[in-house]
Amino acid sequence: MQRISLAYDIAADIDLFCRSFWDEDFVLAKFRALGARAVTLSIGPGTDGEQIVTSEREVPMDAPPMLQAVIGEWSKVHQVESWSGEAGGPYRCDIEVRPEGLPASARGEIIVEANGDGCTLRCETDAICTVPMVGRMAEKFMAADIGKRLDAEVAHIAASL
């Protein structure tokens, strides 16, 4: 298992920032701007009032050669986010990411809290591989890839608001 711990200070209103994660037009534009293709998206309320965001998309992969041979240049990623929270925050998201072709998955939590005129996003995620032979490499790659993609996603959202 590989732990990913990330934190960002965002110069945007917490409610506007968090609502962007379940605004269909915004999410589709964000994924496309970040290089995804073949995007499908479903957004709707869950049983407890949370917003459930289910996406599937193909993303470019910049993997080490041994993994690149297995997963190729593109990977289909299945992602489910469950967002909850009230106006003014904090907001919480349970997230699960499963890339097709890579014997690994990630589960974690995102917390967004108000911070002055902006907000702070904290992400704690675990990448887990199911195949012992390539496990450590796949987990490290997935952890680094999640970090890189979350960096780009947060930067894109902050710049777009």
Rank of each mutant, 00 (worst) to 15 (best):
V80L: 07
S84N: 14
A69G: 14
Q79V: 08
Q68H: 09
E58K: 05
E58W: 04
W74G: 04
D62R: 11
E81Y: 13
V70C: 00
G88P: 01
E73A: 13
K76I: 13
R57A: 02
E56L: 07
P60D: 11
E73I: 06
V70K: 03
P60F: 08
P90N: 06
A69H: 12
E86Q: 14
V70R: 04
I71K: 03
Y91A: 06
P90L: 11
L67K: 00
K76Q: 13
A87N: 09
Y91C: 11
S55I: 00
A87R: 06
Y91L: 08
D62F: 05
A63L: 04
A63E: 03
M66G: 00
R57G: 05
W83T: 12
P64G: 06
E56F: 04
C93T: 00
C93D: 01
D62V: 01
P65C: 01
P64Q: 08
P90G: 12
L67T: 05
C93K: 04
G72Y: 05
L67A: 01
T54P: 03
E81H: 14
G88E: 14
E56Y: 01
D94M: 12
C93G: 11
E56H: 01
H78R: 14
T54D: 11
E73T: 15
A69M: 14
H78V: 09
E58Y: 05
P90D: 02
V80D: 02
E81P: 06
E81I: 00
A69E: 08
P65A: 06
D94T: 10
T54E: 11
T54Q: 15
Q79H: 12
G88I: 05
S82G: 10
L67E: 03
P60K: 04
A87Y: 04
G85L: 07
I71F: 07
G72N: 00
A69C: 10
K76H: 03
W74E: 12
S75C: 09
S82T: 13
V80R: 15
T54I: 01
D94V: 10
S75G: 10
W74I: 08
E58D: 15
Y91F: 09
G85M: 11
E58R: 00
E56R: 01
G89F: 03
P64T: 06
Y91I: 04
C93L: 04
I71H: 02
I71Y: 07
G72Q: 05
G72T: 00
M66I: 08
V59F: 00
W83C: 10
Q68T: 09
A87K: 14
R92K: 12
S82A: 15
Q68G: 14
I71V: 15
G85K: 11
A69R: 15
G85Q: 11
E81R: 09
E81N: 12
G89W: 10
V70Q: 08
A63I: 01
S82W: 15
T54N: 15
E73N: 13
V59K: 03
W83G: 08
Q79F: 13
H78Y: 08
R92C: 06
S75R: 12
P65V: 09
S84Y: 03
E58S: 11
V77T: 04
V70N: 00
E56V: 13
P90K: 01
E81V: 05
